[in-house]
Design a protein around this nucleic acid. Structure first.
Lengths: 168, 168
DNA sequence: AAGAATTGTTAGCCTTGCCTAACAATTATA
DNA sequence: TATAATTGTTAGGCAAGGCTAACAATTCTT
């Protein structure tokens, strides 16, 4: 588990294009400029010029008026982005109990900047709360209670107080 | 608790400048271009031009060759950024047990893009694990154990298994 | 107080990444 | 198949945000 924070190679915008291309291809088959344009909510000329920059870096293949494809390298960059996106989105919804829409929005932004260590910890955290076989000291349940009521459930507080008593 | 995701007004770069100015002022007294330059690791002309943009938006006051000051509005923007930074940094170190350096780096990036809802939840989460008065079903302790060993402590697993037995 | 050192500004350049307007190629349809 | 609709490209513009080189103001030192 070495820390080799590989200086981020691509801009958020580039990563967004690669991600969009990967996802469109998974959903349909052939990826067109217009689809990318709609998905990322930018105009077509912006897509064309982004694709140019991406080909220069060897991440996509795009012949004029034709479909867009990822190179193996583009593929692997896209995969990384999608992976980060999914982990973040799960962390927000499952661990922090945030609504899907906000979770997606935040994941879209944070996927471009988070360190691999923090991401790894978030993934571990989800594993942790899911693998926890206990029901009474149940993390997500108590957390949600706390979110709603601003304090822990009665029985927890009670036990906490006992403790403090004993300490005196 | 209404969701009024006030369309983010300022760029990450602008926010960085405001944050840096606020923190330098808190540490020393009068803020100079050279200090900002060193702190943000950009050249002085970049600072000068950034300050120009910031004055146009009414966020700082800067007379040629003189000190830099925040306007009340700049102040409040800076305060927001610092607040987000601190919450994120605490979340990473205290909740996810990430080293201070990585936590700071990530906070610096994420502070510019996270939604107020997610931030609020992270703050609540820290409150939660801190206010938890229980020791045995101790979240941070068990989480750290899980981080190190890849599974929960014996007694948890044991109890989990008991449960499954009963279910059969 | 004069010269040296430091600090700050200006001018000008570059890239990214978006945009609109105009035109060109492709595809669909009468 | 000719024309209309759609899709894509080119050209050109603009703002943000960084840079260097050259110059100007300020401050420090003797």
């Amino acid at each position: 588990m070495v820390k080799q924070q590989v200086e981020r190679q691509h801009t958020p915008s580039m990563e967004d294009y690669l991600e969009a291309i990967a996802m469109l291809r998974d959903a349909n088959k052939a990826v067109r400029v217009s689809q990318i344009s709609r998905r990322l909510k930018v105009r077509m000329p912006s897509v064309t010029s982004a694709l140019e920059r991406l080909s220069e870096k060897g991440l996509v293949v795009h012949e004029r008026y034709r479909y867009v494809e990822l190179t193996p390298e583009g593929e692997s960059v896209a995969e990384g982005v999608v992976h980060r996106h999914e982990a973040l989105s799960r962390f927000f919804t499952e661990a922090l109990d945030i609504d899907r829409e906000t979770a997606e929005e935040d994941a879209c932004k944070i996927e471009h900047v988070i360190s691999s260590l923090s991401l790894e910890r978030m993934i571990k955290f989800i594993e942790f709360i899911q693998s926890c076989p206990l029901e009474e000291p149940n993390f997500p349940k108590r957390y949600k209670y706390y979110l709603e009521h601003g304090q822990l459930p009665e029985e927890c507080l009670a036990r906490g107080l006992e403790k403090e008593e004993r300490r005196k």
